[in-house]
C-alpha cells in the first residue's frame, strides 16, 4: 500500500526527468529509464503509477516497471499520440513526470505466503518491480510463481531477465501465437496454473493484464480455493489528473487513480460484472 509522504509541490505539476536509457522491448514497446533533472519525486512502490508527459502532446498514466532510487523505469506501448511520443523518445530527451499515484501491490502484506504473479501482455510491466522485490527478500515469502501470457514470442517483455528469475521463481510462459521456433507453451495463461507451485488456500496472487484475462484468472483462482481478498488485480481506466479531481477513472465507487489501480478481487469482482459501469 502507499506510504504517505510530504507533498513538496502540487501533484498537478510535471517534474522534469531525463531519459537515461531507452530500450526497444518488443514491437511497439520500449522501456525507458528516467532520472530527475533537478528535484526528485517522492519514492514509488511497485504497482503505483506516474503521469508521464511528452512535451506538448500530453500525459498518460504509466505504472513503474522498475524502481531504482530516484530512477524510474516505465515500459510503454504505443497505442495513441502520447504513448507513441514517449515510446519513441531517445536517451537525453526530457519528459515531465507526476506521481507517485495510486495504490501499490501491497507485497509486504503477503509475507509468509506463496506468491502467484500472473501477467498478461504489457501487464507484466507493473508486476516486474514486485517480482524483483520478492526476489530481493529471500525467505520473506513462500514459493514464487511468475506466470506470463504473451501474444507472440516476440512480444515477451524482459525476456533475459525473466529467464534469470528461475530457479528462484517458477517462471512459466505461454503464448497465444507461437512462431516456428517457439518450443514453449501455447495457450491462455490460466492453463499455467496447473503447473504453478502454490497453496491456493493461502497464496497471495497479483494479476495484471487485459480485463477479461484478469477476470478469467481470478475466477480460476477462486475456483481453486483462493481467498478473493488476497487476489490483487490492477485495473485500467483512463486517468487524467491522477489526483482524484477529474472523475475520469471512476469505476463504480472507486476513483481508480486514488483507490486503485491495484484493488483486491473482493472489491473488483462485483464492479467488473456490471457492463459499462
Amino acid at each position: 500500500m502507499t506510504t504517505p509522504h510530504a507533498v513538496a509541490h502540487s501533484a498537478a505539476l510535471p517534474v522534469p526527468h531525463r531519459v537515461v536509457t531507452r530500450a526497444a522491448e518488443a514491437p511497439g514497446v520500449a522501456t525507458i529509464v528516467l532520472e530527475p533533472v533537478r528535484s526528485a519525486l517522492p519514492p514509488f512502490v511497485p504497482g503505483q503509477f506516474a503521469m508521464v508527459y511528452a512535451f506538448g502532446v500530453g500525459d498518460i498514466p504509466l505504472s513503474v516497471s522498475g524502481i531504482d532510487g530516484d530512477r524510474l523505469t516505465h515500459t510503454v506501448r504505443s497505442v495513441g499520440a502520447v504513448s507513441a511520443a514517449l515510446q519513441g523518445l531517445e536517451a537525453g530527451a526530457t519528459v515531465g513526470v507526476r506521481g507517485p499515484f495510486g495504490t501499490g501491490w501491497g507485497l509486504p502484506a503477503a509475507a509468509g505466503r506463496d506468491l502467484l504473479v500472473v501477467a498478461g501482455g504489457i501487464g507484466l510491466a507493473p508486476l516486474r518491480p514486485l517480482v524483483r522485490a520478492a526476489l530481493a527478500a529471500p525467505g520473506e515469502y513462500g514459493r514464487l510463481n511468475v506466470l506470463i501470457g504473451s501474444r507472440t514470442p516476440q512480444d515477451l517483455l524482459y525476456a533475459p531477465e525473466t529467464r534469470g528469475w528461475a530457479p528462484r521463481a517458477r517462471v512459466l510462459v505461454t503464448v497465444d501465437r507461437p512462431d516456428g521456433r517457439w518450443r514453449g507453451d501455447v495457450g491462455v495463461v490460466t492453463a499455467l496454473l496447473d503447473r504453478a507451485a502454490f497453496d491456493p488456500g493461502t497464496a497471495a496472487a497479483f494479476v495484471c493484464g487485459p480485463e477479461p484475462m484478469i477476470r478469467a484468472t481470478a475466477a480460476e483462482l477462486v475456483h481453486r480455493g483462493a481467498d478473493p481478498g488476497r487476489i490483487m488485480v490492477s485495473l485500467e481506466r483512463t486517468m487524467h489528473c491522477a489526483t482524484g479531481h477529474c472523475g475520469h477513472c471512476q469505476l463504480g465507487p472507486l476513483l481508480l487513480c486514488r483507490d486503485g489501480p491495484v484493488v483486491s478481487w473482493t472489491t473488483a469482482e462485483p464492479l467488473l460484472l456490471v457492463r459499462e459501469l
Binding site: 510535471p14 517534474v15 522534469p16 533533472v37 526530457t94
Partner: peptide, 17 residues
C-alpha cells in the same frame, strides 16, 4: 490554465505553475 511549460534549446523542460 494549470501550468505552462517551455522547452529550451538544449531540450530541458521548465514548468511554470
Amino acid at each position: 490554465r494549470e501550468w505552462s511549460a517551455d522547452r529550451s534549446a538544449d531540450g530541458d523542460l521548465v514548468v511554470t505553475e
